[in-house]
Simulated scan of single mutants.
Amino acid sequence: MSVYENLHFGRRFPDPRAVLTLLKPITWFPPVWAYLCGVVSSGVPLSSSPLLVFLGLMLAGPLVCGMSQAANDWCDRHVDAINEPDRPIPSGRIPGRWGLWIALAMSVLAVWVGHFLGPWGFAATILAVLAAWAYSAEPVRLKRSGIWGPGLVGLCYEGLPWFTGAAVLSDGMPSYRVVVIAALYALGAHGIMTLNDFKALEGDRQTGVNSLPVSLGPERAARIACIVMAMPQAVVIALLWIWNAPVNAMIVTALLLGQVWAMRILLSDPRARAPWYNATGVLMYVSGMMVAAFALRMVGMT
Protein backbone atom coordinates (compact mmCIF):
# COMPACT_ATOMS: atom_id res chain seq x y z
CA MET A 1 0.00 0.00 0.00
CA SER A 2 1.43 3.35 -1.03
CA VAL A 3 1.75 6.54 0.99
CA TYR A 4 -1.30 8.31 -0.44
CA GLU A 5 -3.50 5.36 0.58
CA ASN A 6 -2.36 5.73 4.19
CA LEU A 7 -3.11 9.41 4.66
CA HIS A 8 -6.55 8.95 6.25
CA PHE A 9 -6.13 5.98 8.59
CA GLY A 10 -9.58 6.09 10.16
CA ARG A 11 -11.63 6.56 6.98
CA ARG A 12 -13.45 3.50 5.67
CA PHE A 13 -15.97 5.24 3.41
CA PRO A 14 -15.59 8.11 0.94
CA ASP A 15 -16.28 11.68 1.93
CA PRO A 16 -19.49 12.59 0.01
CA ARG A 17 -18.02 15.93 -1.04
CA ALA A 18 -14.95 14.13 -2.30
CA VAL A 19 -17.14 11.86 -4.45
CA LEU A 20 -18.68 14.91 -6.12
CA THR A 21 -15.18 16.32 -6.64
CA LEU A 22 -14.12 12.98 -8.15
CA LEU A 23 -16.91 13.17 -10.72
CA LYS A 24 -15.86 16.74 -11.70
CA PRO A 25 -19.22 18.37 -12.57
CA ILE A 26 -17.44 21.16 -14.45
CA THR A 27 -16.37 18.59 -17.08
CA TRP A 28 -19.96 17.55 -17.78
CA PHE A 29 -20.68 20.67 -19.79
CA PRO A 30 -18.94 19.72 -23.10
CA PRO A 31 -20.76 16.39 -23.70
CA VAL A 32 -24.07 17.80 -22.42
CA TRP A 33 -23.70 20.77 -24.78
CA ALA A 34 -22.76 18.47 -27.67
CA TYR A 35 -25.81 16.30 -26.99
CA LEU A 36 -27.98 19.42 -27.11
CA CYS A 37 -26.32 20.38 -30.40
CA GLY A 38 -27.28 16.97 -31.74
CA VAL A 39 -30.86 17.39 -30.54
CA VAL A 40 -31.10 20.82 -32.18
CA SER A 41 -29.48 19.68 -35.43
CA SER A 42 -31.90 16.76 -35.77
CA GLY A 43 -34.72 19.15 -36.67
CA VAL A 44 -37.11 17.31 -34.36
CA PRO A 45 -39.01 19.50 -31.85
CA LEU A 46 -37.60 19.09 -28.34
CA SER A 47 -41.16 18.97 -26.98
CA SER A 48 -41.83 15.77 -28.94
CA SER A 49 -39.56 13.63 -26.74
CA PRO A 50 -38.71 15.51 -23.53
CA LEU A 51 -37.88 12.32 -21.63
CA LEU A 52 -35.33 11.25 -24.25
CA VAL A 53 -33.76 14.70 -24.12
CA PHE A 54 -33.55 14.59 -20.32
CA LEU A 55 -32.19 11.03 -20.16
CA GLY A 56 -29.62 11.85 -22.83
CA LEU A 57 -28.42 14.90 -20.93
CA MET A 58 -28.10 12.91 -17.69
CA LEU A 59 -26.31 10.13 -19.52
CA ALA A 60 -23.87 12.39 -21.36
CA GLY A 61 -22.99 14.44 -18.27
CA PRO A 62 -23.26 12.95 -14.77
CA LEU A 63 -23.22 9.30 -15.80
CA VAL A 64 -20.81 8.73 -18.70
CA CYS A 65 -18.61 11.81 -18.24
CA GLY A 66 -18.69 11.48 -14.44
CA MET A 67 -17.78 7.82 -14.75
CA SER A 68 -14.92 8.60 -17.10
CA GLN A 69 -13.53 11.12 -14.61
CA ALA A 70 -13.70 8.59 -11.78
CA ALA A 71 -12.02 5.94 -13.95
CA ASN A 72 -9.32 8.37 -15.04
CA ASP A 73 -8.59 9.49 -11.48
CA TRP A 74 -8.35 5.90 -10.30
CA CYS A 75 -6.00 4.91 -13.12
CA ASP A 76 -4.03 8.16 -12.69
CA ARG A 77 -3.72 8.03 -8.90
CA HIS A 78 0.07 7.68 -9.09
CA VAL A 79 0.35 10.62 -11.50
CA ASP A 80 -1.98 12.73 -9.35
CA ALA A 81 0.13 11.95 -6.29
CA ILE A 82 2.84 13.98 -8.09
CA ASN A 83 0.78 16.66 -9.86
CA GLU A 84 -2.17 17.20 -7.52
CA PRO A 85 -1.83 15.25 -4.24
CA ASP A 86 -4.88 17.01 -2.80
CA ARG A 87 -7.23 15.23 -5.23
CA PRO A 88 -9.79 12.87 -3.64
CA ILE A 89 -7.96 9.59 -4.21
CA PRO A 90 -4.31 10.50 -3.47
CA SER A 91 -5.40 12.62 -0.50
CA GLY A 92 -7.20 9.64 1.04
CA ARG A 93 -10.63 11.29 1.13
CA ILE A 94 -11.73 8.42 -1.11
CA PRO A 95 -9.92 5.53 0.57
CA GLY A 96 -8.87 2.07 -0.57
CA ARG A 97 -10.44 0.89 -3.80
CA TRP A 98 -13.55 3.04 -3.53
CA GLY A 99 -12.52 5.07 -6.58
CA LEU A 100 -12.50 1.89 -8.66
CA TRP A 101 -15.84 0.67 -7.29
CA ILE A 102 -17.47 4.03 -8.02
CA ALA A 103 -16.22 4.00 -11.61
CA LEU A 104 -17.38 0.42 -12.18
CA ALA A 105 -20.80 1.01 -10.62
CA MET A 106 -21.35 4.10 -12.75
CA SER A 107 -20.31 2.17 -15.87
CA VAL A 108 -23.05 -0.37 -15.21
CA LEU A 109 -25.58 2.36 -14.41
CA ALA A 110 -24.72 4.26 -17.60
CA VAL A 111 -25.25 1.18 -19.78
CA TRP A 112 -28.57 0.46 -18.04
CA VAL A 113 -29.83 4.01 -18.61
CA GLY A 114 -28.51 3.95 -22.17
CA HIS A 115 -30.81 1.09 -23.15
CA PHE A 116 -33.80 3.40 -22.65
CA LEU A 117 -32.55 5.56 -25.53
CA GLY A 118 -33.16 2.92 -28.16
CA PRO A 119 -30.61 0.97 -30.22
CA TRP A 120 -28.61 4.01 -31.33
CA GLY A 121 -28.39 5.48 -27.85
CA PHE A 122 -27.59 2.11 -26.31
CA ALA A 123 -24.80 1.40 -28.80
CA ALA A 124 -23.35 4.88 -28.32
CA THR A 125 -23.39 4.43 -24.54
CA ILE A 126 -21.51 1.14 -24.72
CA LEU A 127 -18.96 2.71 -27.05
CA ALA A 128 -18.51 5.69 -24.72
CA VAL A 129 -18.02 3.49 -21.65
CA LEU A 130 -15.48 1.29 -23.44
CA ALA A 131 -13.67 4.37 -24.74
CA ALA A 132 -13.44 5.84 -21.24
CA TRP A 133 -11.73 2.73 -19.90
CA ALA A 134 -9.54 2.37 -22.99
CA TYR A 135 -8.31 5.92 -22.46
CA SER A 136 -7.30 5.44 -18.83
CA ALA A 137 -6.79 1.76 -18.00
CA GLU A 138 -3.93 -0.59 -18.65
CA PRO A 139 -2.97 -2.33 -20.85
CA VAL A 140 -4.55 -0.10 -23.51
CA ARG A 141 -4.22 3.29 -21.79
CA LEU A 142 -4.49 5.46 -24.89
CA LYS A 143 -3.79 8.43 -22.65
CA ARG A 144 -0.10 7.64 -23.11
CA SER A 145 -0.34 8.80 -26.72
CA GLY A 146 -0.43 12.49 -27.54
CA ILE A 147 -2.30 11.62 -30.75
CA TRP A 148 -4.77 8.89 -29.88
CA GLY A 149 -5.55 10.05 -26.34
CA PRO A 150 -6.80 13.58 -27.12
CA GLY A 151 -8.44 12.27 -30.28
CA LEU A 152 -10.49 9.73 -28.34
CA VAL A 153 -11.53 12.29 -25.73
CA GLY A 154 -12.49 14.80 -28.42
CA LEU A 155 -14.62 12.15 -30.11
CA CYS A 156 -16.38 11.20 -26.87
CA TYR A 157 -16.82 14.76 -25.61
CA GLU A 158 -18.06 16.39 -28.82
CA GLY A 159 -18.65 14.01 -31.72
CA LEU A 160 -20.34 11.00 -30.10
CA PRO A 161 -22.80 12.98 -27.92
CA TRP A 162 -23.74 15.15 -30.91
CA PHE A 163 -24.34 12.08 -33.06
CA THR A 164 -26.29 10.41 -30.24
CA GLY A 165 -28.57 13.39 -29.64
CA ALA A 166 -29.43 13.58 -33.33
CA ALA A 167 -29.88 9.81 -33.69
CA VAL A 168 -32.08 9.45 -30.59
CA LEU A 169 -34.40 12.31 -31.56
CA SER A 170 -34.52 11.20 -35.21
CA ASP A 171 -34.94 7.54 -34.22
CA GLY A 172 -32.42 6.58 -36.86
CA MET A 173 -29.19 7.45 -38.61
CA PRO A 174 -28.66 11.25 -38.72
CA SER A 175 -28.17 12.99 -42.03
CA TYR A 176 -24.73 13.07 -43.57
CA ARG A 177 -24.52 16.81 -42.86
CA VAL A 178 -24.98 16.20 -39.13
CA VAL A 179 -22.36 13.45 -39.12
CA VAL A 180 -19.83 15.61 -41.00
CA ILE A 181 -20.24 18.67 -38.75
CA ALA A 182 -20.12 16.55 -35.57
CA ALA A 183 -16.95 14.85 -36.82
CA LEU A 184 -15.30 18.18 -37.64
CA TYR A 185 -15.96 19.60 -34.18
CA ALA A 186 -14.75 16.35 -32.62
CA LEU A 187 -11.53 16.67 -34.63
CA GLY A 188 -11.05 20.25 -33.49
CA ALA A 189 -11.55 19.19 -29.88
CA HIS A 190 -8.25 17.28 -30.17
CA GLY A 191 -6.57 20.67 -29.78
CA ILE A 192 -8.64 21.52 -26.71
CA MET A 193 -7.65 18.25 -25.07
CA THR A 194 -3.99 18.90 -25.89
CA LEU A 195 -4.17 22.22 -24.03
CA ASN A 196 -5.80 20.41 -21.13
CA ASP A 197 -2.68 18.22 -20.88
CA PHE A 198 -0.56 21.23 -19.92
CA LYS A 199 -1.69 21.06 -16.30
CA ALA A 200 -0.24 17.53 -15.90
CA LEU A 201 3.04 18.20 -17.68
CA GLU A 202 5.43 17.23 -14.87
CA GLY A 203 3.55 14.15 -13.73
CA ASP A 204 3.09 12.94 -17.31
CA ARG A 205 6.79 13.35 -17.97
CA GLN A 206 7.75 11.37 -14.87
CA THR A 207 5.26 8.55 -15.49
CA GLY A 208 5.76 8.01 -19.21
CA VAL A 209 2.61 9.67 -20.58
CA ASN A 210 3.71 11.04 -23.95
CA SER A 211 1.27 13.90 -24.31
CA LEU A 212 2.10 16.45 -26.98
CA PRO A 213 3.31 18.99 -24.38
CA VAL A 214 5.72 16.32 -23.09
CA SER A 215 6.93 15.00 -26.44
CA LEU A 216 7.04 18.29 -28.38
CA GLY A 217 7.39 20.89 -25.66
CA PRO A 218 4.74 23.44 -24.62
CA GLU A 219 5.39 25.93 -27.43
CA ARG A 220 5.17 23.49 -30.35
CA ALA A 221 2.28 21.60 -28.76
CA ALA A 222 0.32 24.84 -28.35
CA ARG A 223 0.89 25.83 -31.99
CA ILE A 224 -0.30 22.43 -33.19
CA ALA A 225 -3.33 22.61 -30.89
CA CYS A 226 -4.29 25.99 -32.34
CA ILE A 227 -4.04 24.70 -35.91
CA VAL A 228 -6.06 21.60 -35.07
CA MET A 229 -8.78 23.71 -33.44
CA ALA A 230 -8.96 26.26 -36.25
CA MET A 231 -8.84 24.16 -39.42
CA PRO A 232 -12.02 22.10 -38.86
CA GLN A 233 -13.94 25.28 -38.06
CA ALA A 234 -12.77 26.77 -41.35
CA VAL A 235 -14.21 23.72 -43.11
CA VAL A 236 -17.47 24.12 -41.14
CA ILE A 237 -17.72 27.74 -42.34
CA ALA A 238 -17.20 26.69 -45.95
CA LEU A 239 -19.84 23.96 -45.68
CA LEU A 240 -22.38 26.33 -44.13
CA TRP A 241 -21.91 28.69 -47.08
CA ILE A 242 -22.33 25.79 -49.51
CA TRP A 243 -25.47 24.62 -47.68
CA ASN A 244 -27.03 28.09 -47.95
CA ALA A 245 -26.68 29.16 -44.31
CA PRO A 246 -24.67 32.39 -44.80
CA VAL A 247 -25.72 34.13 -41.57
CA ASN A 248 -24.63 31.16 -39.48
CA ALA A 249 -21.41 30.93 -41.48
CA MET A 250 -20.64 34.59 -40.71
CA ILE A 251 -21.31 34.10 -37.00
CA VAL A 252 -18.98 31.08 -36.87
CA THR A 253 -16.40 33.13 -38.77
CA ALA A 254 -16.59 35.90 -36.17
CA LEU A 255 -16.21 33.34 -33.38
CA LEU A 256 -13.19 31.81 -35.12
CA LEU A 257 -11.58 35.24 -35.48
CA GLY A 258 -12.10 35.75 -31.77
CA GLN A 259 -10.33 32.46 -31.15
CA VAL A 260 -7.43 33.52 -33.35
CA TRP A 261 -7.04 36.63 -31.18
CA ALA A 262 -7.08 34.43 -28.06
CA MET A 263 -4.61 32.03 -29.67
CA ARG A 264 -2.09 34.84 -30.15
CA ILE A 265 -2.24 35.55 -26.43
CA LEU A 266 -2.00 31.82 -25.65
CA LEU A 267 1.12 31.39 -27.78
CA SER A 268 2.91 34.19 -25.95
CA ASP A 269 3.18 31.92 -22.89
CA PRO A 270 1.45 28.54 -23.45
CA ARG A 271 1.98 27.05 -20.00
CA ALA A 272 0.68 30.08 -18.16
CA ARG A 273 -2.05 31.01 -20.65
CA ALA A 274 -3.59 27.57 -21.29
CA PRO A 275 -6.14 27.86 -18.42
CA TRP A 276 -7.06 31.36 -19.63
CA TYR A 277 -7.61 30.10 -23.17
CA ASN A 278 -9.80 27.28 -21.88
CA ALA A 279 -12.06 29.94 -20.36
CA THR A 280 -12.17 32.19 -23.44
CA GLY A 281 -11.24 30.52 -26.71
CA VAL A 282 -13.04 27.27 -25.87
CA LEU A 283 -16.20 29.20 -25.02
CA MET A 284 -16.17 30.66 -28.51
CA TYR A 285 -15.52 27.21 -29.96
CA VAL A 286 -18.54 25.60 -28.32
CA SER A 287 -20.70 28.63 -29.15
CA GLY A 288 -19.91 27.99 -32.80
CA MET A 289 -21.08 24.42 -32.35
CA MET A 290 -24.59 25.53 -31.44
CA VAL A 291 -24.65 28.08 -34.26
CA ALA A 292 -23.77 25.27 -36.67
CA ALA A 293 -26.43 23.04 -35.10
CA PHE A 294 -29.13 25.64 -35.77
CA ALA A 295 -27.85 25.95 -39.33
CA LEU A 296 -28.26 22.20 -39.80
CA ARG A 297 -31.76 22.43 -38.37
CA MET A 298 -32.72 25.12 -40.88
CA VAL A 299 -31.06 23.30 -43.78
CA GLY A 300 -32.89 20.10 -42.86
CA MET A 301 -36.25 21.87 -42.97
CA THR A 302 -35.75 23.31 -46.45
Rank of each mutant, 00 (worst) to 15 (best):
L187T: 14
P218F: 05
E158C: 12
P174Q: 11
A200N: 15
R177T: 07
G188I: 10
L201Q: 12
G203M: 08
T207V: 09
W148N: 02
R220Y: 03
L216K: 11
A189P: 01
R223D: 05
L169S: 14
W162C: 10
K199Q: 15
I181G: 00
L195P: 00
I147K: 04
V209D: 00
R223P: 02
G208N: 11
S175G: 15
V180D: 03
N210G: 05
P174G: 07
W162D: 00
D204R: 05
L212N: 00
A167K: 01
S170D: 04
G165N: 11
L201H: 13
S211C: 04
G217M: 06
N210H: 13
V178C: 10
F198G: 00
L212D: 00
T194D: 04
V180R: 05
W148S: 07
K199A: 12
P150T: 07
L201I: 13
V180P: 02
G154D: 08
V209E: 00
Q206G: 01
N210W: 08
L169Y: 12
L152W: 09
P174H: 10
I224K: 09
S215E: 12
V179R: 12
L216M: 14
E202S: 09
W162L: 11
G191C: 11
F163G: 00
G149A: 11
S211A: 14
L155W: 14
A166Q: 07
I192C: 03
T194K: 01
L152D: 06
G149I: 08
S215I: 04
G151T: 05
T164Y: 07
V179Q: 13
G203L: 09
S215K: 13
Y185L: 15
V168R: 02
L169T: 09
R205D: 06
P218E: 12
A183C: 13
T164D: 08
H190S: 04
R177H: 13
Q206R: 15
G203R: 08
L201C: 04
E219T: 12
D171K: 14
I181T: 09
C156D: 02
L201T: 04
I224V: 13
R205S: 14
I192K: 00
L160F: 05
D197K: 05
V153G: 01
T194Q: 07
A182T: 11
R223S: 08
A200M: 04
Y157V: 05
G159E: 10
H190T: 13
R177E: 15
A225E: 00
D204T: 10
G154Q: 06
L184R: 06
L187N: 01
G203Y: 09
S170V: 04
F198D: 00
Y157G: 01
A222L: 07
L201K: 04
V214I: 10
H190E: 08
V179C: 10
L169M: 15
P161K: 08
A221T: 09
A182D: 09
S211N: 04
D197L: 05
I147G: 01
A186K: 02
A200E: 14
R177S: 13
L187V: 15
L152S: 06
A166M: 11
